[in-house]
Nucleic acid binder design. Sequence first.
DNA 1: GAGCACTGC
Length: 774
Amino acid sequence: MATGDADRKRSSDASDSLATAKRVKKEDGGDDKPAAYNPYLAHLEAEKNGGYANSTIPKGSPLEKFTRRETTAKQAFKAEDSDNNPFTGEPHSQQYFKILDGRRNLPVHKQRQEFLDMYHSTQILVFVGETGSGKTTQIPQYVVYDELPQLNKKLIACTQPRRVAAMSVAQRVADEMDVELGQEVGYSIRFEDKTSPRTMLKYMTDGMLLREAMHDHMMSRYSCIILDEAHERTLATDILMALLKQLAQRRPDLKIIVMSATLDAQKFQKYFYDAPLLAVPGRTHPVEIYYTPEAENDYVEAALRTVLQIHATEPEGDILLFLTGEEEIEDTCRKLSLEVDEMIREADSGPMVVYPLYGTLPPHQQQKIFQPAPPPLKKGGRPGRKCIVSTNIAETSLTIDGIVYVVDPGFSKQKIYNPRIRVESLLVSAISKASAQQRAGRAGRTKPGKCFRLYTEEAFKKELIEQTYPEILRSNLANTVLELKKLGVEDLVHFDLMDPPAPETMMRALEELNYLACLDDEGELTPLGSLASEFPLDPTLAVMLISSPEFYCSNEMLSITSLLSVPNVFVRPANKRREADQMKDLFKHPEGDHLTMLNVYHAFKGIQNSGEDPKQWCHKHYLSHRHLSSADSVRAQLKRIMETQGLELMSTDFNDKNYYTNIRRALVAGFFMQVAKKESSGKIYRTMKDNNQAVMIHPSSVLQTDYEWVLYNEFVLTTKQYVRTVTGIRPEWLLEIAPVYYDLDSWDGQKDVKQALKSVQDKMRRRAAMKGGR
DNA sequence: GAGCACTGC
C-alpha cells in the first residue's frame, strides 16, 4: 500500500539522518580519557554510542568508559558493584547487594562474557535456557549494560506471552536494578502502560509489540528486541518472528534475541539464517519417569488410582495431576477426597487436600493452591500432602513449588480449526513430547521428583508428536491476515512464517475479509479494513462496531461488542442451576441473547451508579462481576478508539419502537455470514453456506425455535453441533445489509434457502414498486 | 437440555 511505503520511508530516513545530524563532538577533554584518546577520532566513539557523545553519561558514573556494544562482563560487574546506581546516580540500597549475590549464583551469570561476545558478533541471536537459568530476568539486563539506552534513547523490549509474566518479571528486574517500577524498567500490557520517558527496558506482551508495529513498521523505538518464551509459539510470537526476520535487513542497527526453553532451538536457528546459538543449563532436579506397562483405556480412572497409590506408598511431597477440563477436574477432586477419607479411616493414611485448578476459576480460588500441605492428623502420624488437579494452566502459566509427583495421562484440550466449515473447536487430544517433558519437569523444581505417565513408553516414542502444533496452524486467520496487511506485508503467500498455514486456511481468511469489505477484490486493504485493524477485535466485531452509527446505535453496539469479547457473564454453579436460570430470566429479552446480554450490562451499570455494591448484586444475580468489569474496561478502550477514529457515538431513543430493531440490524452488518435458517421440521437449523451444517440452538439460549432466521455469535462443536448466543432476524435485512454475500444470482448455498430468500426479495421489490408508484 | 484448554490486542 502507498501509505505503508510512505510510513516506512519516513521513519527510515528519520532514524538515519538523526544519527548523522546529531552526532556531537566529544567535548570534555578531562583527565580520564582512554589511553589512546585522539580528539580527531572522537566522532568514531560517538558513533559507536549511537550518535551521541558520552556526554549524557555523567562524569564519574560507573558507566563512563563504556562504549556501546563493546562492553565486557568485567566492566559490567564493576559497575554493578559500585556504590551508586549507574542509571539513577542514587546510592545502591542494601537490598540491591543482597539480590546481586543471588543473581551471581544463577547459571546464566557464568556465561555473561560469552553472551556479550556473541551479541557483539551478530545481529540475531538464539538463546536457549531451561527453567531456572535466569534468562528472562538477566539477559535483558546484560543488554541494558551493553546497549546503554540512555545514550541513543532507544528502548530494549522483552516480550512475554502473558500479561502476568510481563508485570511480575518487570517488578523483579526493577528490584534487581534498584529502580522504581515504571521508571528505568517498566512494562506495557493491554489496559496498562507502566513506562515513562526514562524507561530503558520494557517488558511487554507479544501482542502489544505487534500492535505497536502496526503503526511503526520499522520498530524504530527499539535498539534491541528480545522475544522470550518463543517455544510457546503464540500467534503473536510467530508473526513477530517473521516481521523481525524481514526487518533485520532494513534495520541493520537492530539486534534481535530469540529466547526459547526447549531443545527445538535448531529450528529457530535455521529459520534465522543460521544465527549463532547460546545454551545455558537450567537448574532443576532430576525427575524419574515411569510408564504404564500397558495402555489404559480410561485415563481418568487410571489417574485416580495412581494418585491414591502415590499417597499410600510414596514419601512426603505434593502431587500434580493433569486433566483436560473443568468438569473432569471437579469430578475427580470430589472422588479423590472421598477415597482419601476412606484411606484415613481404614489404613491410617495421612491427610490429603485436593485443589482444582483451571483458568475460569476465580483468582482467590486459584490462590488456594499455594497453601502449604496439611500437617499430620496426629503428632508423629503420616505426613499430609496436597494434590492439585489442573488443566494445562499448570504447564506454562502457573508454577507451583513443592511438587514432587506429577501424574500425566497424556491429554489436553486443544483448539483446532476446520477451514471448510469455518469452525474452531476444542478437542481432547494427545499431548506432544515437548508438553510431556514440560509436565514432568514440574516435579523437579524443589527436589528430585517422579513423573507417572499413564501411557506406555512405546506410545510416548511412536505416537506423540514432537511439538504441539503452533497456534497459527490451528486458528481462523481472518484477524491475522488483517493484521499482516496493516503491518505492510504485501505478499502473504511468500511471507516467511516459521510454519506456514494451510493454503485453504489462508484462502478462507482472505475470502472472509473480502466479504466484510476489509479487503478489495485484489486483496488490498480497504479504508474499512484499515479502520477495522485499529480495533483489538476480530474483523467481524470490528466491522459491526464501525457500521453501527449507520444504525443509530453505536453506544449499544459498543456494549454488546465488549460483552462478546469477554468470557460468559452468566454464572451457573453445578448445584444451583435452577436458581441461576431463574435469575437469568429476569434479564431475558424475547428477541435474543445479544439483547439479553445488553439488558444485563445496563442493569449492571445502573447498580454501579446507584451506590449498591455491584459485587453483591452480581453474586445475587448469578453474574460474573469479574467478567462484567472486564467488559467495562474493554468498552472504555473501544470507545476511545471510536472517538479517535471519528466514529460517532449515538443511541436511538429508548422509547422509539426501533430501538431494538436498530440493534438487531446492526448485528447483521457484522455477522451476516453467521446466519442459520430453521428446517421445515422442528429444531434443526441449517447454516447459510459453509456446507450448510445442521445445527441446534444451544440450550442456554433465550431463543429456542421462535425464529425462522437467526444470527449467531459462535458455532460450538461438542456432543452435538450448536450455535450459541443467538438473535432472531428478518431475512429482508440480509438482502438489504449484505447484498454481496446474499447475491442470489451467484448463490452457492442450499436451493430451498435460495428460494426462500428469492420470495423475500420479490416481496421487497413489489413493496418498493408500490411506494415508487405513489 | 448444556461442558468454555489457554493466551492476547
